[in-house]
Nucleic acid binder design. Sequence first.
DNA 1: CGGTCTCTTGACGGAGTTCAAAGCTAGTGG
DNA 2: CCACTAGCTTTGAACTCCGTCAAGAGACCG
Lengths: 196, 196
Amino acid sequence: MPEVLHQQLRQMIRLSEAEIESFIRLFTIRHLKKGENLLIPGEICRHLFFIRSGCIRYYYTSDNGEEHTGQFFFENGWYTDFESYLTGKPGTQTIEAIEASVIMQLAKTDIDRLYDENPLFERFGRLMIEQGFLAVKRRNASFLNESPEERYLELMRTRPKVVERVALHHIASYLGIKPESLSRIRKRLQMQDSGS
Amino acid sequence: MPEVLHQQLRQMIRLSEAEIESFIRLFTIRHLKKGENLLIPGEICRHLFFIRSGCIRYYYTSDNGEEHTGQFFFENGWYTDFESYLTGKPGTQTIEAIEASVIMQLAKTDIDRLYDENPLFERFGRLMIEQGFLAVKRRNASFLNESPEERYLELMRTRPKVVERVALHHIASYLGIKPESLSRIRKRLQMQDSGS
DNA sequence: CGGTCTCTTGACGGAGTTCAAAGCTAGTGG
DNA sequence: CCACTAGCTTTGAACTCCGTCAAGAGACCG
């Protein structure tokens, strides 16, 4: 059993070991190859995902076929398309494994049942969405306050994993620019570095 | 007593009229003149706000003194700086009344007490943050997927109130551009309109 | 070893920014 | 009630950065 998930749950909810065990047993495992999708537009997102290993991203596809990635998640991270998950409507995003990944998924139906059975799980649900909210808000502020170059520097500073493990054209799409532009930003920064 | 607030609460939580009355009594009223602030950077946000009349915006101030407005809220809308409210840490945003406004505020201490007293209020808290989450997510997607001009058109289409009531330089700062650029976008659109 | 995908580079065009200045508008005080 | 002023909006010219199109170099996989 995945020890990290165990620990995270212990920190989030005050349950006995036995209760946590039975909670974890509700998760099912999925193995994804690099490039496989966890969710595609039009599908309703009925699960909460815990990334045991690997890396996923979610992205929107615009009319002209461009991909705009919203976020990357690595091992021990949580994700779900809350827009679809909460509303029950078909989603508009794609969730893609960009590395071979092992995903533990928990069905919304099980979560909702847990809410009813034990109010302590309400806290779990609230923490999930609070955490998601704060992350989305930070991302918002970065679009609002920073230029593409600043966003890239910030990304390197605060989330080196992304720059190390994710393809540059995916990073570009995360920053809201084209791969060519990211390439030029990187060159610009190199020259500044060596020049100073 | 504000009838709209009454109605909204009735829709959100299944409480008796008496319970709702006593809930509403927890709110206190604040009158703000145009330009007055509800919250400034460095302060901890300890309240949830319901806008009874008027209009507020929240914005971040960057190092060079530029304001970047995150969102506008009108009468019958809810807002709080969740980042500060949830974490209990000093916030980084300013909440400003951009019209003379009447605000009903509810203290976090009261809300937390209600959570304990009656689990039905958990639902209120969850709806608040879910609603905020979805809004921020939409805004995020608009930055990711749309150009400034498209964002402006979208704003006119979906939230005409903003374009009608808010100063153009505030709208520009909401769109992530300079007032001069918004002025040119508007001119461009006018010419296209009359030309077609 | 060939092909595909990724990243880089160059030239050009376009949209937003900057700096500066000139109308407008609305709120204030006389 | 009008005049004045401060803030808002528009306009112009020069500049910057990103997007586009095109091509080439490098890396990885079968």
